[in-house]
Computed example of a mutant assay.
Amino acid sequence: MSAEPLLTEYPPSRPAPARANEMVSIIRSSFAEVEDDAEELAKHFYSLLFHLAPETRELFPANMVVQRSRLLRALVHVVQMVDHPDELGPFLSQLGRDHRKFGVVTKHYNAVGGALLGAIAHFLGPGWTPRVQTAWTEAFNVVSHAMRAGADGDTGPACWLGRVVGHRRLSWDVAMVQVQTGQPIPYHAGQYLSVETPRRPRLWRYLSPANAPREDGIIEFHVRAVHNGWVSRAIVAHTERGDTWRIGPPMGRLTVDPDSGRDVLMVAGGTGMAPIKAILETMAQRSDNPRTEVFVGGRRWEDLYDFASLRQLSYTNPWLNVVPVVEEDEGISGAEHGTLADVVTRYGAWKDHDALVCGSPSMIRATVSRMLVAGTPLDQIRYDPFTMD
């Protein structure tokens, strides 16, 4: 499939509601038909991309396993949010700004579109009808326009250089890394950043700062060495003071709305404590805050590697209550027992709360699903899609 016909309009016209609904329905149903072949689809996509635009190969690492899984998460997220433009638009805009660090230009978007539609067409076979092709083409035009508009509207650096000024193990598989940039990165507490480390070039990993922005430009990251995590294992085991990291623009919309009038629920699993800690640190600087309940969970007590600092924060801020949750250590006193999904929904439906959920993709899926069943309104739950290697 040629890429040239894809970008037919700039900017694309907004489809009429009936036509937009039809497009969403076609995209979801056709994607469902190829979802079982997602891994092979991703391989085919990159094969087509490197054929259409050979110069893009040098933008990616030699080992493409992590990159393929990241593509699938992005594609699934877009498919899930395609009929929520108010949420999908900001995500795509941020994604476009983030891709500036690669030197992506318009012809690369054309090639990506051609490769994506070509891969889906290949696996749909006879199901790739003119109506399906039109729906996916229109959708990609909208996606590419939003990403390019986000990139074109950003006048800041494409990325920042930072020097590692601290590295310390917080547990056997979690490390705290402090990186200082020459100028502060304009992120807000709760957002995440893409980082590239010298030991894993071209393998970018999303990390959430564990501190509110500081004038000295120091950012603290909490990194867990996940199984088969090329980047995370290298960061935990081999990072040294003086290492130079590249850091991409901030992404994500995880934050507390002080004007919503609702109390706040925060659910954090593992290193999902990092963005929660940064948000709480920011809130502690204000004089007036909503009542905030924080559930921090792990399989064992030692997985709650930074619980002491959160508990200390609760001692000095009466609006804050922190509840530890463990799955396996039933003998631990002073902690709730079970999964985070179990414990949080055991406490109630949280209908009058704004909820923030941070952790691994599986933990987020399980917790959000249980909360929805319990009666928590979907539009009051916030989480970000990219959290792991």
Rank of each mutant, 00 (worst) to 15 (best):
V112M: 09
G217Q: 00
T271N: 00
H44R: 13
W319R: 02
F60V: 06
R291K: 11
D379Y: 10
I381D: 00
T181G: 10
G331R: 03
V66F: 03
C159Q: 14
Q178W: 05
F221L: 14
V236R: 00
P12N: 04
A335G: 06
L59I: 15
A268D: 00
E293P: 01
E293T: 09
V179M: 03
G331V: 09
G252I: 06
I247C: 02
D98A: 15
R169W: 08
R286L: 01
R205W: 07
L193E: 10
E40M: 11
I27Y: 05
S314I: 08
T271G: 03
D354F: 07
A16P: 06
S309Y: 05
E328M: 09
D352A: 11
V226E: 12
I279M: 02
V236A: 04
G118D: 05
V165Y: 09
G261M: 05
N289G: 03
S208P: 04
L203E: 14
E39F: 08
G252H: 05
V267G: 05
D83V: 11
R253K: 08
L193R: 06
E22N: 05
L207N: 04
S47Y: 03
M1K: 08
M147L: 09
Y46V: 06
V323R: 13
R28S: 07
P130W: 02
S47G: 15
L254S: 08
Y192S: 04
A355R: 03
V34T: 13
G217A: 04
G248C: 04
A42R: 08
G338W: 00
L117V: 10
A349N: 02
D36H: 14
S25P: 09
P184M: 12
V343R: 10
S69V: 13
R253E: 09
T181D: 04
V343N: 03
G248R: 01
F140K: 02
M388T: 15
R299M: 06
I26Y: 07
L72H: 08
S309Q: 07
P186H: 14
P5W: 08
R57I: 06
V294C: 00
S333D: 15
V24K: 02
G242T: 13
D259Q: 11
Q80C: 05
Q191T: 11
A111P: 11
M363P: 12
G297C: 02
T316S: 12
E138D: 15
E87Y: 09
N141G: 14
S362R: 15
N21W: 01
P250D: 00
T197D: 01
R14S: 14
P17Y: 04
R70I: 13
T56N: 02
P318M: 02
K101H: 14
F221M: 12
A237N: 08
R300K: 11
R19A: 15
W350I: 12
D37C: 08
G359W: 01
L372Y: 03
